[in-house]
Design a protein around this nucleic acid. Structure first.
Lengths: 251, 251
DNA sequence: ACTACATTGCGTCATAATAACACATTACTG
DNA sequence: CAGTAATGTGTTATTATGACGCAATGTAGT
């Protein structure tokens, strides 16, 4: 696949790529979707190149969709990375040899690549990690146990998480990581995990419901230890209304 | 100069540019530094290309510095723009003819360019708008009276202002737009102008001083109508301390 | 079946932050 | 030298937040 792109590199934006930080939530852990290709020993963020006839946002959707199978989810550009030597060690001659790419064509890949970072929030339960081919491993990994990543992907991941934390404070985007029906305690765990901070149960309930974007369902979570918590769903209409006024304005 | 770049295009990142939204504050107006080249009839944001041997942040500093003469100021990447047709109408054959560039070389410029947006906050009083050459007009323009801009520069400008508003709520960055010594009413006017909202004098004073990053000087503003307001200066050390804890956390 | 237990749901209170407003002070203006 | 238009300081009511208490609920163990 990479060989296809390089062989037809005139169809792709040169020196530009996209990397996606895909977040999911499971077992009270914030997970990140990572990829390992056979030839490399390190993990990396799912990424891709940008067809010359596609908006960069569209190309990002393609990357996300090809790995997770979902679309219509929360996807947001957060930063662009372009240090001079960011891909110096990686796109080297070994890969060209491995892929049997002639050196002339290979020059397209060898130059400095600037990468545009997107982060996505997806419903873990709906995702089936989808390897592009047999040589690829795709896996959800707890963000606290992310191993060494290629290039500057660690920096990209960290920046994505920083952005997520800030945006979670600005607007209630957390529901994107949960199924349609969820409980307040689940939502709280999510907040606590992302913000890496314990929150008071009672105060959390008050604050989150006061925003007015949650609908209390006439249904309780079943098959659960101890008292069954109530289920809630997210109200998109009210959410848009609230966003207009702006949450946590400050001034 | 553009011709030089195109003639030596192998020294520059292909299909990538930088555009800077440079904000200043003067006469109670939020100003934007805009450029008009002789051949075009529209204004544009100051921009530039990215040498292959420079970090993108460094290239942004170069753009800012070449237009304003200042450095060490607040400069922040805020978004990257890459719609397929964003520079379709602009980088067309007319320019190539005008610059006497052969069509083969011209192809470098004709493709879709993705541009990385940076915004800067500068002390208006220290800046002398600096045209790169005789054919160029560089001017401060009130953000409420920005004329039609080339390409998607209007969209870039709007996004920069949105980002500025949000970041002003998250951290007190406004002082970057004022001289070393300033008065609280001046700072308030700045906030009111950026946020496009009237604020209460008394409450503003209390809130801004409570942050603890302003030093009250033993000096009053002179040559001023009515009661002379006290001068303040910004305390960088305390600012860094405050930022560590995070302002306006939300949760 | 009954009790212990962990967890949820609702409420209270003290404190802090915010909004709205009154009044005295200052220095230029006519 | 009084009028005026600002600045500086304080007061109060309202709201938001943080730290708890306690009853209700459903499971698990005996």
């Amino acid at each position: 696949m990479l060989k296809d792109i390089i062989d037809n590199n005139e169809n792709y934006q040169p020196g530009l790529s996209i990397d996606c930080v895909i977040f999911g939530f499971h077992d009270n852990q914030l997970k990140v979707l990572l990829i390992k290709v056979e030839r490399a020993n390190k993990w990396s963020l799912p990424g891709g190149f940008i067809p010359v006839d596609q908006d960069i946002d569209t190309a990002a959707i393609t990357v996300l969709n090809s790995r997770t199978g979902v679309d219509g989810v929360f996807l947001r550009q957060f930063a662009t990375f372009g240090k001079v030597d960011r891909n110096k060690q990686h796109f080297d001659k070994k890969i060209l040899e491995y892929l049997k790419i002639e050196e002339a064509k290979g020059k397209w890949l060898m130059r400095r690549f600037v990468t545009i970072g997107y982060y996505a929030l997806v419903d873990f339960s709906k995702i089936l990690p989808n390897p592009a081919n047999r040589l690829e491993v795709v896996e959800w990994i707890d963000h606290k146990e992310v191993p060494e990543l290629i290039l500057d992907h660690r920096e990209i991941l960290d920046k994505a998480l920083d952005t997520l934390r800030i945006e979670l404070n600005l607007m209630p985007i957390g529901y994107n990581l949960l199924p349609e029906k969820f409980t307040i305690p689940e939502l709280q765990k999510l907040y606590e995990t992302i913000l890496d901070k314990k929150l008071d149960r009672r105060n959390f309930l008050r604050k989150i419901t006061n925003i007015g974007i949650l609908t209390k369902l006439d249904e309780k979570k079943s098959n659960v230890a101890h008292k069954a918590p109530n289920l809630y769903s997210f109200d998109k209409g009210k959410y848009d209304e609230v966003l207009k006024n702006g949450l946590n304005q400050g001034w």
